[in-house]
């Protein structure tokens, strides 16, 4: 090349910026911490809870937090802390399965719609629009009516209802990726559509999908709580944060902690997953690196 002899060595071979190292951003740190907390609660509940969570104890109902019952007792004289710990399992279970169903179906559909175009792409998106017309909760209620109220039915219903949002966001991201020159270059290099989807499209829409997943996770947790609250999700006799809220509603004034504790747990979990999603997206983006 003709650029020899540059005194201070700003040679073209030297990349101009950055080190390529990634850093733990605050969102990822705080969000990850909250997510870990929920996971830890769920794990701990398998080996230890202060009391059997659903057992009626020989003590007073409506106790405020004290040395024996750290988060108090409910109207059935059950320990609140134990229920919260076990409820974390339900929450995670619902979130993971609902988001898993939605993403595993929605993301490939979105990529298919973007890459095939024509009648196939149109058909996929129209079917998607029809599904989108059903509110998640309504679908869940329908499912509960058909198959009986259970945690499994609730989360599959929520998952199905969330498919369109994944398909839609994946499709719009994939359309952008498909119009770039690097996809043209990959075609000119001889890659088929499947290889392009895996090598280029999926990694580049991953950020969008992750954020959507974190939002969907939060929505799923809330929806489970809402279904349990309506008495359509997790049945009586199983711990669930939503069910705890439902059971505490009549005593909102006399025993507010029974609402506050599961309410705070839900809020923190939702916040945690949202932050975690944002942070993870940034962490995985090679453009946002340590300077």
């Amino acid at each position: 090349m003709s650029e020899a002899g540059s005194p201070a060595g700003m040679m073209p071979s030297t990349p101009v910026v950055g080190t390529g190292r990634r850093h733990l951003n605050p969102s990822l740190f705080v969000g990850g911490g909250l997510v870990l907390l929920v996971v830890a609660m769920a794990l701990v509940s398998y080996v230890w809870t202060p009391y059997p969570p659903m057992r009626v104890l020989g003590t007073e109902a409506y106790q405020t937090p004290n040395a024996d019952f750290w988060l108090g007792t409910d109207r059935f004289r059950r320990d609140v802390l134990s229920q919260i710990l076990v409820g974390a399992r339900t929450t995670l279970y619902v979130g993971v399965v609902a988001v898993g169903v939605a993403a595993l179906v929605g993301v490939p559909l979105g990529i298919l719609a973007a890459m095939s175009g024509g009648w196939l792409g149109q058909t996929v998106m129209r079917a998607n629009d029809i599904l989108l017309a059903f509110p998640a909760l309504l679908l869940a209620i329908m499912f509960a009516a058909l198959y009986g109220g259970s945690t499994q039915v609730a989360m599959i219903a929520i998952g199905i209802a969330t498919i369109p949002s994944f398909a839609r966001i994946t499709r719009s991201g994939a359309l952008g990726v498909m119009s770039t020159d690097y996809v043209t270059a990959a075609r000119a290099a001889g890659h088929g559509p499947f290889a392009i989807a895996l090598r280029h499209v999926l990694p580049n829409v991953a950020g969008l999908v992750i954020v959507q997943a974190s939002v969907a996770f939060a929505i799923a947790i809330l929806a489970e709580a809402a279904l349990a609250y309506l008495g359509l999700g997790t049945p009586t006799g199983q711990a669930s944060w939503g069910r705890m809220l439902y059971e505490a509603q009549s005593t909102l004034r006399s025993a507010p902690h029974l609402v506050l504790v599961p309410g705070a747990a839900i809020a923190l979990a939702v916040l945690g997953f949202n932050l975690f999603g944002d942070g993870l997206r940034d962490y995985l983006d090679p453009k946002l690196e340590r300077r």
Binding site: P7, A8, M10, M11, P12, V16, V17
Partner: peptide, 29 residues
């Protein structure tokens, strides 16, 4: 014949050298 070139690339903002801003690409510096 090869075109005459200025060696290197324009540095990103804030990475220009002190003194004369062009000296890291300048043949006479």
């Amino acid at each position: 014949s090869a075109l005459p070139t200025i060696p290197g690339t324009v540095p990103p903002a804030g990475r220009f050298p002190d003194g004369c801003v062009f000296r890291n690409r300048c043949p006479a510096a």
